[in-house]
Design a protein around this nucleic acid. Structure first.
Lengths: 207, 207
DNA sequence: TATTATAGTGAACATTTGTTCACTATACAA
DNA sequence: TTGTATAGTGAACAAATGTTCACTATAATA
């Protein structure tokens, strides 16, 4: 019940194609990859792989040859989109993942980033639109003038994007839109400002 | 960006079929399941789901409609950034790849997309900044009013982002910035407008 | 030797299937 | 009202594709 060299080659080609492209190769595409000129030889090999239990197909249906065993693909670290973050919960709470984007989170400089759907028009001055996905790198603190995802205990119950301005003894949260007044926190109130992380990137889809 | 009821039904049917049977349903199988008698209506819905980023397909290939997310992340294809495209060269010329982003190009609805670095401020009205990476889906043509990467023979020697407006016998290329005058091409000149593809997404790094 | 399993070529067939075009209809908003 | 987005029907085209038949060739084995 062992596989011949050709059978192994074709089986692994099919696995690779499905992994890379998401659809199974046609018989002619398999021929092309191996420089073969006739489909019937490949078709016979597919039948052999089916008989030996490595492939399955829906007879007559296009691109239906596929492996029976799911190759346990270890996918790269993906980017989680956390829609709303309940107050007090740590960022790494996994229950809130709304979506996993097929993006290596290292794209934005460091792993461990996460995404937040942007709602509203408070950041249009920085060309961040409603519907965008803001990429946040977790951090307890940011520099003066940087954009951060923040929550304020008792005031803002979900994460919002703000420009953080630090003055002596107070913290100002500015929108990038003149229609919105800055929020100013002084003294003890400034302690309530919780910084979730710094804005490091943006993804926009469905334009 | 929301889905209609029909769109949700069809998306979830495709997900279920792939999960249960291992291959994507054909357009006619989708019709059959919902008791519809014509494929073109379903096809239009598939295109809508593609435009909204929920499905991807390999155009013309059988049974290639499949989810881009919320399902199995089998797709690892990366996104190539083509900085400048020399006039006359086909889009698929691989020599111009400036960078490979660790992003599944299916994130933006369809495989085969590529990126272009955005330079200048001509698209700030659409909140596209200098330094952004515009994600382009190759296409010979776009609908009136859509944003596209275009070249004009003898006038624009590298790809630029423009809003394409089609009138009778002429083509207008608008910037999304009142500082820039639209370019108007009439008659024979309109033939020189080469559309490289449609804007489908955006990535911003290093904020 | 004869037999068997495996591979490959070449041609052809019949379907499946994605895609498009031209209509119609409905709901909703400007 | 007009326009726009969404759905649906019906017909048709062109290409992709699985499958089969008839051949040849090579290596291993009884």
């Amino acid at each position: 019940m062992d596989l011949t060299r050709r059978q192994k080659e074709i089986l692994s080609f099919i696995q690779k194609e499905i992994e890379e492209k998401g659809i199974s190769p046609s018989v002619r595409e398999i021929c092309g990859h191996f420089g073969l000129k006739s489909t019937s030889g490949v078709h016979r090999i597919l039948k052999a792989l089916e008989r030996k239990g490595y492939l399955a197909s829906a007879p007559g249906k296009k691109r239906s040859w596929r492996p029976t065993r799911l190759q346990g693909g270890l996918y790269k670290k993906r980017l989680s989109v956390l829609g709303q973050i309940a107050a007090g919960l740590p960022i790494d709470a996994q229950e809130e993942v709304l979506e996993e984007l097929p993006v290596d989170s290292g794209l934005f400089g460091q792993e461990g980033c996460f995404g937040l759907y942007v709602r509203g028009d408070s950041m249009t001055g920085l060309h961040i639109k409603d519907g965008d996905i803001a990429i946040i790198r977790p951090s307890r603190d940011v520099e003066d003038g940087e954009v951060a995802a923040v929550m304020v205990e008792g005031v803002i119950s979900e994460a919002t994007l703000k420009i953080v301005r630090k003055k002596k003894g107070r913290v100002e949260l500015h929108a990038a839109n003149p229609l919105y007044e800055p929020l100013v926190f002084e003294g003890a109130d400034a302690e309530g400002v919780k910084i979730l992380g710094r804005l490091v990137g943006l993804i926009r889809r469905g334009i």
